[in-house]
Design a protein around this nucleic acid. Structure first.
Lengths: 231, 231
DNA sequence: GGAATAGTGTCTCTAAGACAGTATCTA
DNA sequence: TAGATACTGTCTTAGAGACACTATTCC
């Protein structure tokens, strides 16, 4: 063998995280985009993301939580890994890896619309840089799948909500109407809600609805049922 | 601000792939482990894995396929990303990322038992280095979930198999017996199998079973049903 | 009281599970 | 023919959907 300089331990790889931050606005799923401060694609709307900081981040999850805090001022109660994108061409700076997370938050927590942070409906997105379009599509798919058999959509609601409202949230996520009786049977089976004693949501010329909240044990974990909500 | 040397584009991160290679042996899920050739944990049995090679790999998926070929001589028809593990402490060499894939192959394709490549039952594994134990556990969970409503387990069978055999494969993966009539109804609904004309599996003192094969369009993609196999 | 939505009781219908029957092989 | 397993027909049962009824509010 020809003597060569010892190769480095590993090839240099650019390691970033991106976050698909989802919320519900006007009965439609929206994704929160932020304007890129640096090249490449400086000035473009994109998923909030950034480099992993090896000095401060304990994991990619922590990096994603930090990015969410820095770019949108949000401390999301639900932040789950989606998948990892990688390859030599996705970022012009070189062979790169992006570990992608997704988060769900109620509309009330979304920062006010500005030039730098905007909410866009997921089915009418501007053209996104890198492979961010794929990431959003896969996040939607994951959320729709999980919503079929879990309490995931409650993260799109605030602290107190009514069953009719929660049903519209599920319907918006799943994209189809749900039978009212079946829906209530499922919520009962999930056993994750408790009525807020004496709290009703009035406001219309009709019977007011009972307000519910998540049982404490489900604040940051999902309730799951074996057979999904058959929508 | 004090003048400092310009930080590099990104902090150095070690980027590897690992593969959870699963197969069925004696009606039990087994994972194929290979002996580590290099430090750290040199000589230990671990998931086959290695660095991403930025010069030759087009993506982490390609790196995983290459690792599978190099360490076990296998070209798996199904190789899917599981998740990514990361952090400063999981590898003593520094802040590291491992993009983990899982693959399913029939027992006939597993390399012969040797000192360097071994098959171990997933519920009685040796202590694995790094966070490989977590990776295997999560792969099992993923496979069991997907098997409830898809054709995933057929990747554990060879090219031709009988329905009774396929049912035992599903039962081994799911860990519970399945109703025979329901199972056949589901296989029919999945519409992924075709009988091999005139090919029967004889061998016992009883009626021989029809041999089936995957329809070509499902050779490398899954068939999925809405409502799972209710085991 | 009328209109509107919340919440519930109950029937129908679909699909999963149980069970028993027929089919086809070896010894 | 006996015994074993493959395959199928059909009844039972669990659970999702449809529908209608009652409840409670504002006007």
């Amino acid at each position: 063998m020809t003597p060569t300089r010892r190769a480095p331990l590993a090839d240099a790889v650019i390691c970033t995280v991106d976050v698909v931050l989802l919320t519900l606005h006007q009965h439609t799923l929206h994704v929160v985009l932020s304007r890129r401060e640096k090249a490449p694609n400086q000035g473009a709307l994109a998923l909030p993301g950034g480099f992993v900081h090896t000095q401060e981040d304990d994991s990619a999850w922590h990096a994603a939580a930090r990015v969410l805090q820095d770019k949108a001022g949000i401390d999301s109660p639900y932040l789950e890994q989606l998948a990892t994108w990688s390859g030599p061409d996705r970022d012009p700076r070189g062979w790169s890896v992006s570990i992608v997370y997704y988060a769900l938050i109620p509309e009330t927590l979304v920062p006010a619309h500005s030039a730098d942070v905007q909410m866009h409906p997921v089915y009418a997105l501007p053209l996104l840089p890198f492979d961010h379009g794929q990431m959003v599509a896969q996040a939607i798919e994951r959320v729709r799948n999980k919503s079929q058999y879990s309490s995931l959509p409650v993260y799109l609601c605030g602290d107190a909500f009514t069953l009719p409202h929660l049903q519209t949230v599920y319907e918006a996520v799943l994209g189809e109407p749900i039978n009212k009786v079946s829906f209530r049977r499922k919520m009962d089976e999930m056993d994750m809600l408790e009525p807020i004693e004496g709290a009703l949501e009035s406001g219309g010329a009709h019977r007011p609805a009972q307000l519910y909240r998540l049982k404490p044990e489900f604040q940051r974990s999902l309730s799951v049922v074996e057979r999904g909500i058959n929508a």
